[in-house]
Design a protein around this nucleic acid. Structure first.
Lengths: 206, 206
DNA sequence: CATATACGGAACTCGGCAGTTCCGGATATG
DNA sequence: CATATCCGGAACTGCCGAGTTCCGTATATG
């Protein structure tokens, strides 16, 4: 949903000279994108919902494709603060600590956006790159940190295939949501950690 | 869902009345779908490539959506013959035996089709159901058989979470291809089996 | 051979959306 | 208050693709 500060919804007071409203518009674009997909989304929808004029959007972005590209690229790291990662002392603790409702919701939104642009990714390297660095890389980075820590601790073998292990969580979530149409819940995520990720890391399920 | 026309009472003169070219057209539709996605695909493309008239397609399917739905539904089990599954005597053997170039190619085609319709799945339960039973269920069925056999053999614990285990392979492939844009090869698949699936099943890597 | 029938293909309508233009009004500044 | 600036919104253009119609032709059947 449009997560805009309710405080600013009131009649627009001062007109800003710069592009202050850009983030707001991009958020709306992502919402529409998640709901209708790229082709279903129209510039009018975005403009109307953002209470902006269509011309305003075109003053800022040369085309629909550019708007979407920008929106996807700006989705980066809204949900993850790399400096405030949990450090529980165990791999399982770290992984489970990431299973929080806000994180789950943000993940689902990302997946819906991904579904909305899926058909273009194969034909647009730019969009693919944006999606890669905004949607999949941040999550992988976090996991990489956890697994490296675990290796340093001696908790898992030093020759563990970190890249492969990093994929399991996101892959299972994406598959469940996009392919099976089944939204994930805390239980699914925790048992994925316990039944698959930790065994694959050769760690006994805690 | 290619339902045959009403039984004819009238004399059959002229050309064949059966829709003998349907499968051919549906195959072309799938190709175009995989290449361009649902919205990028036009009826003209399909007609031209199938050397058919656009009118012919509309004589057979009432709309583009129906054509695509039918095409996806008919994708069922082109690649897997449930009666000719390998039975190597070990779980690893069975799983690895499925890693064959034709199977990989068919998987990638299915994933491209999936990507092409991904944005509509959330809004079309019919299409979601078709994709489910034609694209994901067949593969899961095969895996289920392998894991059940392994349990019967006593190779893996009887309380193994078969449903979860079945997902790992497809999930990793889908994630790699759709999200990372990295086509999978035999090495990736085999090491996924050895490093993730078998450990998760509490089997030592063979 | 005669003919009913379906087919390929071309031409057409029609609606929707990307992108453009224009204008009245609100705003900030001096 | 004067004015330069930017915005929201509405009207407009042009294109493209879904769906329709029509016709010449191929073909199986009698």
């Amino acid at each position: 949903m449009t997560q805009v500060d309710e405080a600013e919804v009131k009649p627009r007071l001062g007109r800003k000279r710069d592009h202050t409203r850009d983030p707001e518009i991009l958020e709306v674009a992502l919402d529409v994108l998640a709901e209708t997909g790229y082709d279903g989304m129209t510039i009018d929808m975005v403009a109307t919902r953002a209470k902006a004029g269509k011309a305003t959007l075109y003053r800022r972005w040369p085309s629909k494709a550019d708007l979407v590209l920008d929106a996807v690229a700006c989705m980066k790291s809204k949900d993850i603060d790399l400096d405030a990662l949990p450090d529980t002392g165990t791999l399982r603790g770290d992984l489970v600590a990431m299973v929080k409702p806000p994180s789950i919701r943000e993940s689902e939104r990302k997946l819906k956006v991904m579904a909305g642009i899926a058909s273009m990714i194969a034909r647009s390297p730019e969009l693919a790159a944006a999606a890669q660095s905004a949607l999949v890389e941040p999550r992988a980075s976090v996991n990489r940190i956890f697994f490296r820590r675990a290796i340093e601790r001696g908790e898992i073998p030093a020759d563990a295939d970190v890249e492969r292990l990093c994929m399991i969580g996101p892959a299972m979530v994406a598959y469940s949501v996009l392919m099976l149409g089944k939204p994930v819940d805390r239980e699914f995520l925790v048992s994925t950690i316990d039944k698959i990720i930790l065994p694959a890391a050769r760690l006994p399920t805690a």
